[in-house]
Design a binder for these strands. Structure first.
Lengths: 205, 205
DNA sequence: TTGACAAGATACCGCTTGGTCGGTATCTTT
DNA sequence: AAAGATACCGACCAAGCGGTATCTTGTCAA
């Protein structure tokens, strides 16, 4: 179905989201600093004038990608599944099962968009760092809350400190992706996540 | 004491190692792609002609940094300590204690040189990836051998698969550094390593 | 002492980069 | 229908990039 908005010869919102999507891909492939505006424009058939109408600088575009593309994507793939069960061990274990089963060449080739930008940008640009940090903190918090509730429900060992464990789990996930990425091996990625799963299961009450 | 070699007005080996050192710093701060040869030269008072006498391309310089600076540095800081004890749990725990105690702002600011290059370069340049992979594999192997020997000495749980656990531990270490780096927080880095230490200790026989 | 080669210096090149700017087309408001 | 704002266009720019060519200088064996 075509809405009236889509019939217009102009569609600023579409243009904007096209740019965000293309920028996301380009950044994923090349990193932010090496991302080429020309290449992004070539992939969107948007003009440079239009780009600079929507975004003041390349940096603004990058920050928008972090907030409007990477953050929601990560929330959907890693946060949401936590709200399904009262046992976080089961939730997390299932998430890991899913990641192991659905591990694709694409994830292995380019790694985690969040982690990529952290390593590249956090020492160089404070605003970037802050944007990425917001995502990380939400991630850790969601997991910590789930673990704490698991403790109340006697699903999780009570000697565990939820915030600390959650921090570690997020770190381990990023580490697994990073190692799989460099090995260019889906199998190495899966093996690494399996070990994380064993760790997670050792947290059960 | 000044050796004759140091008195010479020319010292190609010194020039070469100066370049490697400056390139290492520049890459650590900016990443490889954004590393500027001009900046490296400015920090060494070496001429461009000299640089291109020693290294064919920027890429060659980068690969040399991986093999001749990053690899030995990592070996010294993470591999060597394993040969001191027959109990890898103790070895690893002490290494982590050391890292926690000596965690510096510098490590937190720029992260792990190996991990930085992995995230940036491994999808872009196969030779880079291979150079980094060699380091990773040596690291995992040293740790796996230590764990396996620990099993024979009844220091490590026998239900553990040394290679898998070693892979996971390396992943977790890189993850901890990465998270600390983005938080720009020595404390977060330390908390993360503490959790890894707890995991390591849970592997004891 | 000299010849040959390694080491280093410097001016220069083509190319890509992010960003600008004057202008045009379309949409909204009055 | 006029006017004003929003969206878009594309030629252009200065700066920085990695790399090259040509030259000079230092080193050391013969």
């Amino acid at each position: 179905m075509i809405t009236p908005a889509q019939r217009k010869t102009r569609n600023p919102e579409q243009t904007r989201s096209d740019l965000l999507e293309a920028a996301y891909s380009e950044i994923l492939e090349s990193g932010f600093q090496a991302a080429s505006l020309e290449r992004i424009l070539a992939n969107t058939s948007v003009s440079k004038g239009a780009l600079y109408h929507h975004f003041g600088t390349k940096r603004d575009l990058g920050l928008a990608v972090v907030e409007e593309v990477i953050a929601p994507q990560l929330a959907e793939r890693w946060f949401a599944p936590f709200e399904e069960h009262d046992d976080p061990i089961i939730s997390l274990s299932r998430i890991l099962d899913d990641k192991i089963a659905n591990a694709s060449e694409l994830v292995i080739r380019y790694g985690c968009p969040l982690n990529n930008l952290i390593q590249e940008m956090s020492p160089l640009d404070e605003e970037f760092r802050q944007g990425l940090q917001n995502i990380l903190e939400r991630w850790v918090e969601v997991m910590a809350i789930a673990l704490a509730e698991g403790q109340r429900n006697q699903k999780v060992r009570t000697d565990l400190e939820p915030k600390e464990a959650a921090l570690f789990i997020v770190a381990a996930i990023e580490g697994c992706v990073g190692l799989g990425k460099n090995a260019q091996s889906v199998e190495a990625y899966q093996r690494c996540l399996r070990q994380l799963q064993l760790y997670v299961q050792s947290l059960a009450f």
